[in-house]
Simulated assay, not measured.
Amino acid sequence: MPPRKVQQKKGVRVLKQASKRPSTQHHQPSDEEEDMGTIRALVARVDALERERLQPCDAGAGPSTASTGKKSARLVEKCTKSRILASLVSRIGVLEAAAPVQEPAVLPSPVASSVVLLASSFPMFSRPDVDGLLQGQAQSPQSSVLPGSSESSALVASPLVASPAAYAGILNLPVPVRIVLCGHSILFWVHRRASSSFSGMQLQLSASATVSWEARRGMLWDALLPLVCRTMASAAQPHILLIHLGENDLVQRPGMDLLLKVRRDLTWLRRSYPNLILVWSDMLVRRIWRGAIYTNKIDRSRKWVNRKVRDLILSLGGVCISHDRVKFYSPQLFRDDGVHLSERGCDLFLEDLRLGLRSLFSLLG
């Protein structure tokens, strides 16, 4: 039989035991709470200083508003950490913007819109605003006119970004200027296309320059220095060296490793051949990266290395040529392999080279 319930006696009150709750008397504040208290004190001090600055300077006047008493704990909790940090960051930004900034002296340049002035120090991991100068070129209207026509030349902006040292070096060069183009299979097939293209293998620069092509299919960055040394040891030493390399290396090594090699080799070329003008041709996007597992990471690495090498080339007194019209979402510019350029893509590449070098040679007349 089930146990009988014990009947409560009349007049006796049963007291329930209070649930045990953790005592808060000896609660130790955490590091985050201490930081929040410090931040709140800083914000309160900044608010007080701003109110004092806005109030009229009157010794006999009292406070402009009456005291509202202590804020409730609920209202204080609504002031989250993100809002406090945002307030501090915005105010610090205003104070820094008001501080005097020492700007470098601007050197005179023949083409002011194409010149980027950098500090004399070697800014390896700093970013000058090079992309801002290229923004107008990226937003230039796309034209369906074939390259080479007068209408196409009028609509397409020059893809050249040069340092003042490059312009000064061009003025001191004899005419005709000897140019050597070094690169891998992209340059190899562009050279083939140039033989039957409107620009020709001399890129329509025969009046002021002679162009020679040194393209190797599958060429990696490590093969650049031996090729340049052989070229410089010849009787006709080039005055300008254009480099289009790096895409093949991105699949085989990290972007940081490639950047360190590029920095070392280009710096060595500048010290060894101080009169040689270096021209960097931006690495192109690819629809297919052979051997890559994560293609989006490879493309992000390509963009990052391009930006860093632009800064490096400009700091060395060189020239950069971009290829903003060769885009991933334009399959007609690529062959079926997704790597090499089609005839249309080769024409755009040649047009970028021609316009960039022509704007540089405009000083020679």
Rank of each mutant, 00 (worst) to 15 (best):
H244K: 14
G345T: 06
S206Q: 14
G291E: 00
D257I: 07
L276R: 08
V319F: 05
Q135W: 10
V285A: 15
V115D: 03
A207I: 00
F188S: 13
D249H: 09
A194K: 09
G132I: 11
F334L: 07
A86L: 07
I293Q: 13
S206D: 07
P22C: 05
W189S: 14
A166K: 02
D222F: 11
R263I: 00
L276E: 02
S113Q: 09
P128S: 08
G338D: 02
L49K: 15
R217A: 09
S150L: 12
D129A: 13
T210K: 15
V309P: 07
W304R: 15
V43E: 01
L259S: 08
E50S: 10
A18W: 03
M124F: 11
K78Q: 11
L42N: 08
Q252G: 01
Y329K: 12
D35K: 14
V279L: 06
G60H: 03
W289G: 02
L241C: 09
P147F: 00
I293T: 14
S114D: 07
T267F: 07
A166E: 01
G60F: 09
P63G: 04
T267D: 02
R216N: 02
I170F: 08
V279K: 07
G136C: 02
V251Y: 04
Q135A: 15
V12A: 08
P147K: 03
E50G: 08
L203W: 02
R216T: 06
L260F: 12
S234F: 02
R264M: 08
C57F: 07
M219A: 13
L341Y: 10
E33T: 06
C79M: 12
W289S: 08
S301W: 00
V89R: 15
E343V: 04
Q28G: 01
M219E: 00
T210Y: 02
L360I: 09
G365K: 14
S208Q: 05
S359R: 13
V309D: 05
S197A: 08
H184M: 05
V285L: 12
R193E: 03
E77D: 11
G148Q: 02
Q135E: 12
L276A: 05
H191E: 12
R358P: 00
G246E: 01
K16V: 01
R287G: 01
L341T: 03
